[in-house]
């Protein structure tokens, strides 16, 4: 079941890309997270290296989303610590993680429904803008020049993700697949060092999945963005990721290259134990 790989345009991780993988960017160390009696995560440790695509897999309820929420400051673990670029992160809020270079998308799309595609992505540039209140109110100086500069940046992003035709459409009116793409665009607009993607391909048809895979690989290769993604589709995971973390019932089950993980008896047992793959 894990070995089936449908044909897809993107090649698996090339040796050339592997060489670009650098030192540890982020390490989670002995993370334990509880909600009342529910143990969402128990003593989980792994690291994410600069430039790699890191997959987090596991059955539903394994604690994958919780892990991302811990990394970007939504949840605060009872135990353990997070080391970001060699420095232990203090307890932080999500907007501080954003300022530190961590962007993410959500399992359930979290776009600004009342705003256009363009405005949604422009919000991703907020941290790059410095115009004072007066400049914004009078539309002078940086108030105007930054809008134009960031608009040009966002246009390049729209182009890259092939969504220029929907720039003025309110996102609430877009089909699901495109919404996911706009959400990716908004995260990319932040020019993050680490991009966290929570099930970016869930609910997509094959063609949309292939597009999304291509975008993730392109982002990783062209911008050097480190990616950590949660994904259920094993063929996708095996194809695009450099290393895989497997969580089960909040515990770390396995950690290694796709090949190592695929052949791990514990992983096979866990996956045969659940209905979906």
């Amino acid at each position: 079941m894990l070995a089936t790989a449908p044909p897809r345009p993107a090649p698996p991780a090339t040796p050339q890309r592997r060489r670009a993988i650098g030192e540890v960017l982020l390490a989670v160390e002995n993370i334990s997270l509880r909600f009342g009696g529910v143990r969402a995560l128990t003593d989980v440790s792994f690291d994410i290296r600069k430039g790699e695509i890191r997959a987090i897999i596991g059955p539903n309820g394994a604690g994958k989303s919780s892990m991302l929420n811990v990394i970007n400051g939504f949840y605060h673990p009872q135990e353990g610590r997070i080391v970001w670029k060699g420095r232990v992160l203090p307890r932080m809020r999500p907007h501080e993680a954003a300022a530190g270079g961590i962007a993410r998308t959500f399992q359930n799309i979290a776009l600004f429904k009342g705003m256009s595609t363009l405005d949604n992505i422009m919000t991703g540039r907020i941290l790059k803008m410095r115009a004072s209140f007066i400049e914004q109110a009078l539309w002078i100086g940086r108030g105007r020049s930054e809008e134009l500069r960031e608009r040009a940046f966002v246009e390049r992003l729209l182009d890259f993700l092939e969504i220029t035709h929907i720039r003025h459409t309110p996102v609430g009116k877009l089909p699901y697949g495109l919404q996911k793409r706009v959400e990716l665009a908004r995260a990319l607009a932040m020019e993050p060092e680490l991009l966290l993607l929570d099930e970016p391909m869930a609910g997509m048809n094959l063609e949309e999945k292939e597009d999304m895979c291509r975008f993730i690989l392109d982002v990783n290769e062209e911008f050097g963005t480190t990616v950590a993604l949660i994904e259920h589709d094993m063929s996708v995971v095996m194809d695009i990721s450099d290393r895989v973390v497997v969580l089960d019932y909040g515990k770390l089950l396995a950690d290694g290259t796709p090949d190592q993980v695929r052949n791990d008896p514990a992983v096979i047992a866990a996956y045969l134990g659940v209905a979906h793959g």
């Binding site: 954003a98 979290a110 600004f112 705003m115 405005d119 919000t123 907020i126 914004q136 930054e146 995260a187």
Partner: peptide, 23 residues
């Protein structure tokens, strides 16, 4: 139509998502 207005609308539409992009 500036940064401040967009940050207001982001908070209006989904405050959690607003926070993850740095608002």
């Amino acid at each position: 139509r500036s940064r401040i207005g967009r940050s207001w609308m982001a908070i209006r539409d989904m405050d959690i998502a607003a926070e993850i992009i740095g608002i």
